[in-house]
Every structure is written in C-alpha cells, then in structure tokens.
Design a protein around this nucleic acid. Sequence first.
DNA 1: TGCCAACACTGAAGAAACCA
DNA 2: TGGTTTCTTCAGTGTTGGCA
Length: 237
Amino acid sequence: MGSIATDDIRAMPCYSIPEAAHYLRIPETTLRSWVRGRKYPTSGGDQFFQPVIELPDDSQNLLSFINLVEIHVLDAIRRDHRISLHKVRIAIDFIKEELKSDLPLAYHKLETDGLDLFVEEYGQLINVSQAGQLVLRNLLQAHLRRIDRDSAGYARRLYPFTRKRLGQQFIEEPKAIVIDPRISFGRPVLVGTGIPTAIIAERYKDGEAIGALADDYGRPTLEIEEAIRCELYTRAA
DNA sequence: TGCCAACACTGAAGAAACCA
DNA sequence: TGGTTTCTTCAGTGTTGGCA
C-alpha cells in the first residue's frame, strides 16, 4: 500500500496557496479551487466544486511538498492536455484503486504501471486516438521526469518549470531550480547548492547584473537566469 | 491607531463538456 | 442542436497581520 508518514517533512503543511501557485506557475484562483473547492451558482441553486487535492490539515490553507508534486502532475494532466476535471477525477479514482495508494499522483507507480493505466483509462473515457495517447504519455512523462524519488518511490525533490509554456517546448527545459523540503525550508534553490532563488532575484531587482551574480555565486549564467525567471515570473510574463 | 500588503473569498462571465 | 452544468479566470471586496 502506498502511503507516507504524517510526520514526514514532505507531508508537513508549509506552502501558502499563492506561494505554491507562484512556484508551479498556476493561476492562484485555479489552485485554490483544486485544494479548497468552491461553490458556484447553477439554475437549481449553488453547487460545490469538490477539491481534487487533499491538504494535510484542513484547518490551514497550507500545502505540503507532496501536495506540490501532486499539483505538478495534475497540472500536466489537466492543463497541458486539456482533459476535463471530471474525467481526471474518474481516472485518478481508477489508478488509486489499481495502485492501492492514497497519493497516486505523487507515487512512483504512476511513472511505471500508473501512466499506462491512466492513459488506458483516459482512452476508455474519451476514446482518444493512438496518436493522442502518445502525446499524453509524452507530456506526462516530461512532468514525471522532473520528480526525484526516494527508495520507497515517493517524491523527494521537484524541478519546477520556470519558463512560459509554448506548446510542448517546455518539455526539454533545464533542471536548474529545485524544490527540496530538506533544503532552505523547501524554498526553490539552485540545483546542487543551497542558494535560494529569492535571494538572487532580490539582488537582480536591486540592480546587480546577471554576469556579476554568476561570478559571485560561481554558477553558470543560465542558472542565474533561471532563478530570476522562477522568482520574477508574473501572470503578465 | 492607521496604513499597507498579502491573503481569502465570492460574483460574474465565458469556454468547454455534457446530455436530452 | 440548444439548454444546462462544470470549470476556470478575472476582478472586486473583506479580513488579517505587520509595522511605523
């Protein structure tokens, strides 16, 4: 059975909704709906949109690192391939049952057995073509490749996307930024260092040149640019 | 105490999916 | 095919907490 201890640092609530939305480049309101649900008006009165992601503590609006990974995967399924949330819920329930895991979106079996199960279930739900299944598979794999796992198969590190999405171009983005709950309180840092991207972006905003920052930290210019992109991304970008 | 920023909540609109 | 429902997003308002 796939589950994670509640005292595991990865299951601790530590990311606010705006913060998680920023790191994962998802509209804040969408993320809020996914984790808290929301009511919406219908002709027969208000209905409630059920949350898709379960927070570690319902009384706090804080996400865990595991939630971050789940949303990273959900985002690939939902937004990049435009699968309706209704179908996503059905497919998630299906793989949850098949994988015997409470956290199917954050569990390694999604990458092995689950991906095919999901594609298979998704195919049954909407009768997707072989070509469509291949595209879905590639997109999901691109997102899953950005997750490092421990020996038990649970997400240990996440390499968030830092660039604006243009079709499938983002699939080959460099893994320059990492979110690791054991480093810098789980805030994004340059890979292989403990240097928070927020510090780099702050210095850049204060007028320091990218080249100077690269020299100062002894890191390639590309990494500094990725750090700045990660932090200074806005919806208008 | 008042100001400000960040966050939370919700109405409304529009697009997409669903269904008879 | 058209009405209804679902979902996403924008925009506006309310709340809360930090700070001078």
